[in-house]
Design a protein around this nucleic acid. Structure first.
Length: 381
DNA sequence: AAGTCGGGGGT
DNA sequence: ACCCCAGACTT
């Protein structure tokens, strides 16, 4: 085993992919998709790369049922990539409000502007060029290229990882780099052969449909799966163990006070920085948690210096919001100011019309809180 | 390789 | 409660 330098070279991706090749795999997926896959989703039955791109970004880490209403409203307001590029960022953020992962919205806006400026409003068909655009990674680039242009490119999303892990009996957490690398090699090797590009749309959709409708996490419908005859997990009774779960860790808990400060028909909102949680959204002014009621009262008084006399105030019902990596305990406090001559909010703050809160670019729990508190409007009545 | 980034739906 | 979703990006 020594003295053979030619054997030591690293396999290139093409050769490595060869190990996993199997032309019958894509044929089985394509046939099944055409007969039993999904064909009526709002972003299907079009080759408009703008619509396909928009759907793919919204669908990142977000389920189909949650995306559909956002997708419809978004297209209604921004029917073309040029109209989206020209829109003010606040309008884009407002349309994304409640969908989560707000970096997607800012990248979406930047991407629309780059496609308009650099590509004349037409998305490129090369996956490598697509993946150079903000918010578009390798898998999303492949999906856009396959659905929009029939290009031969491999996706690897949560659905594909689950299907591959089971069918091929892949051990290890799919998010681990070594496991993910192997899955990418399989994804490339199993693509329809060159010259079969006409099947790329059905193949790509078929993988997603299998993962979303049959090869689901809880109780996979193996009796209806076209890949069952070749499924390692089914044959070994390990569909419940594969894919291997993400290793869990304790989530830290944080605490904050939120101030609902209103005057007349307006409420005071605060612009959040682009980075961090709820980046780029408006939210409520916050105070660090106080050790006791007196300290909190003093902090509120201090925060409200120059805003005028307090007409009424009350503590609202505390609640919690769970994020992916921490849990946030929110203690809201409402303050109603006496109506006096209009004053300008300090930089980074804005007096926002209460009647327009439903369409404001707010985090979901904040919007819910405000609509509940300020629509009731029973404090002064 | 690990951490950051939401909100909701299914079980 | 727990898991994870048509992932990308930063550190």
């Amino acid at each position: 085993m020594r003295g053979l330098p030619a054997m030591k070279r690293v396999l290139n991706s093409n050769e490595a992919a060869q190990d996993f090749a199997d032309p019958t795999f894509s044929e089985a997926v394509i046939d099944w998709q055409k007969q039993h896959g999904r064909h009526a989703l709002p972003w299907q039955n079009t080759r408009d790369a703008y619509r396909i791109w928009l759907s793919e970004i919204m669908l990142q880490q977000t389920q189909v049922t949650a995306v559909i209403p956002y997708y419809q409203k978004f297209l209604q307001s921004f029917p073309t990539v040029e109209s989206l590029a020209a829109a003010p960022s606040e309008a884009v953020m407002a349309h994304w409000s409640g969908l989560g992962y707000y970096t997607r919205a800012r990248n979406l806006h930047r991407c629309a502007q780059r496609v308009t400026a650099e590509y004349g409003g037409r998305f490129p068909d090369d996956p490598e060029l697509l993946a150079d655009l903000p918010g578009i990674g390798r898998s999303t680039a492949a999906a856009i290229a396959a659905f929009s242009y029939g290009k031969r490119a491999a996706i690897l999303d949560g659905n594909v990882k689950r299907v591959f892990a089971r069918v091929f009996g892949v051990e290890g957490f799919p998010g681990a780099k070594a496991v993910e690398d192997q899955l990418w090699r399989r994804a490339v090797a199993l693509l329809p052969q060159a010259g079969m590009e006409s099947g790329m749309e059905a193949y790509t959709q078929g993988l997603m449909d299998l993962g979303a409708t049959l090869c689901v996490r809880g109780k996979p419908a193996c009796d209806r799966c076209p890949l069952a005859p070749r499924c390692v997990a089914l044959a070994t009774g390990r569909t419940a163990e594969l894919p291997v779960r993400k290793p869990k860790k304790a989530v830290p808990e944080k605490e904050t006070m939120m101030l609902v400060i209103s005057e007349g028909n307006d409420v005071l909102l605060e612009q959040r920085p682009d980075s961090g949680i709820w980046g780029g959204l408006l939210s409520l002014p916050e105070l660090p948690p106080s050790p006791d009621a007196d300290a909190f009262g003093a902090a509120v008084e201090s925060a409200l210096q120059g805003f005028g006399a307090i007409a009424a105030c009350r503590k609202l019902q505390p609640f919690s919001h769970v994020f992916t990596h921490f849990k946030l305990h929110i203690s809201p406090y409402q303050v109603v100011l006496e109506k006096r001559r209009p004053h300008v909010a300090e930089s980074g703050h804005v007096w926002y019309p209460i009647a327009q809160l439903a369409d404001a670019p707010l985090p979901a729990p904040v919007k819910k809180l405000l609509l509940g508190v300020l629509q009731a409007d029973d404090l002064l009545s």
